[in-house]
Computed example of a mutant assay.
Amino acid sequence: MARATRGWWGLVLCLPLLMAGCATHLDSNGPVTASGLAEPADFAFERLAPLTYTPPDWPEALEARVLLPDTPEGRLRPAALLVHGGGWQRRTPDDMDEIAERLAERGYVTVNIAYRFAPTYRFPAQLHDLQQAMGWIHDRADEWRIDTDRIVGVGYSSGAHLVSLLGVLGSNGPLTAPHGGDHARLAAVLGGGLPSDLLKFDDGRLVVEFIGGTRAEKPDAYRLASPIYHVDADTPPHFLFHGRWDSLVPVDHATDFHAALLTQGVESELYLQHYRGHFTSFLTRDNAIEAGIAFLDRQVQEEEPSSPLTRYATQAPVPSSDSSAHADARQP
C-alpha cells in the first residue's frame, strides 16, 4: 500500500512536467523543429497610468494599459494590442498583464484594453472598440515611437476571436467603426482558445447573447462574426494555441482554422496542448506563449530601415536542426 501511495504521489508530482512537454507544434511543413533562440531581449519598461482610448461620444468610456519599453532612442518599435477573454461579457485586462509584460521586455509597446460587454452591447460593438483602439495607437505612434506597420494582436478565447476578426477584416466592409477603422490592419495575430467558427456552437448562451439571436435567427451575423469565413491571401499570419481537451471551444476550431489559413497561403503555426482544457490551456500557457512570441518576432523583423528612424525589432530566432520537444505527439 505504501509503495502504491508513493507511486501515486510521484505521478502527481511529475504531471506538471509531463504536461509542459506534451504538445504538438505544426506549421505548413508539419512538425516544427526547435529554434535556437538568441539571448532574449530583456528591456525595462515604463507603466503608464490607465488611459481612456475612446472619444467623448463613445457609448462607454474604455481604458487601455500601456507599457513603453526602454529601447534605444531614435528607433521605432513594434506594438501589441492585447485583448482579454471572458465570453465577450466578463473578465478584465488583468488577465493579459503578464503577457503584456513579456512582450514589453522584448521591445513591444503594449496596449492592453478593456472593451464593451454583451449582452448590453451586441456584435459588432466589440470589434468597433478594437478598431477605435487601433486608431488611437496610430494617433500616438510618433509620441511612442511605434512602427504602425508592425502592430500585432494578442488574445485568448473571446479576446483571440476579436483580434483575429480584426486581422481578417481590417478596415474593410460594413463593420468599420466611425473612428479608427482606417488604421485597423494587423501585422500578425497570436490567439489561444480561439472560437473561429461561431456557426459550430449549438446556440449556447454566450454566443447567442454576443450576436443577439440564435443561428436560425441571425445566420448572416454568425457568419460575419466568424474569422474562418473571411480568410484570404491578405490575412495576417496567425499563431494558434489550443487545448486538445477543450470542451468549451472544441479543438477543431483551431485545426480547421489553421487548415483554412494554409489553404490561402497564409503563414500559420498551430500549437496543440495535450491534456489541457479551455481554462488550463491558458493557465499553463508558458511554452505556448514563448513559441507564439517567437512567431511574432519573425513577423515584425525588419532587415532594412524603411523610415527616417531606424526600425527596432527583436532578434530573430536562429534555425536549428534539432528535433522539437513540441513535435513528440500524434498530429491532428
Rank of each mutant, 00 (worst) to 15 (best):
A4P: 01
R6P: 00
V12W: 01
L13K: 14
C14R: 10
P16M: 07
L17G: 08
L17A: 13
L18R: 03
L18N: 03
M19Y: 06
M19V: 15
A20T: 04
C22I: 02
H25R: 06
S28E: 15
S28L: 11
L37W: 07
L37I: 04
E39G: 02
P40Q: 11
A41E: 15
L51G: 00
T52K: 07
T54S: 10
A61H: 07
A61L: 04
D70S: 15
P72I: 05
P72Y: 07
P72T: 04
E73I: 00
E73T: 08
R75P: 00
L76S: 14
L81D: 04
L81M: 06
H84I: 07
G87Q: 08
G87C: 05
T92E: 12
P93W: 08
D95L: 09
D97L: 11
L103P: 03
L103Y: 10
A104V: 01
A104C: 04
E105P: 00
R106N: 09
T110P: 01
T110S: 02
V111R: 03
I113G: 05
A114M: 12
Y115R: 06
F123H: 11
L130A: 06
H138T: 12
D139S: 14
R140F: 00
A141P: 05
D142Y: 00
W144S: 02
V152S: 02
G153Y: 10
L165I: 09
L166M: 14
L166R: 09
G167V: 02
G170H: 04
N172G: 13
N172M: 13
T176C: 13
P178G: 03
G181D: 00
L186A: 08
L186M: 10
G191D: 09
G192H: 03
G193N: 06
S196H: 09
F201N: 07
D203W: 12
D203K: 14
R205F: 14
R205V: 11
V207S: 09
V208W: 02
F210W: 04
F210L: 04
F210H: 09
T214P: 13
A216I: 02
P219K: 09
D220S: 12
Y222D: 03
Y222W: 12
Y222K: 04
R223N: 07
R223H: 05
L224G: 01
A225Q: 02
P227C: 08
I228M: 11
Y229Q: 05
H230E: 06
V231Y: 10
T235K: 07
H238P: 01
F241L: 06
R244Y: 04
D246T: 01
S247A: 13
D252M: 03
D252F: 14
A254S: 13
H258P: 00
L262E: 13
G265V: 02
E269R: 14
L270Y: 10
L272H: 05
H274R: 13
H274D: 12
G277R: 00
H278F: 04
F279S: 13
S281D: 08
T284R: 03
A288Q: 05
E290W: 05
E290Q: 14
A294C: 01
L296R: 07
D297A: 02
D297Q: 08
V300S: 06
E303M: 07
P305G: 05
P305E: 12
L309H: 12
T314Y: 14
A316N: 05
A316E: 12
S321A: 14
S321P: 00
D322E: 13
A325V: 15
A325G: 05
A325H: 06
P332E: 10
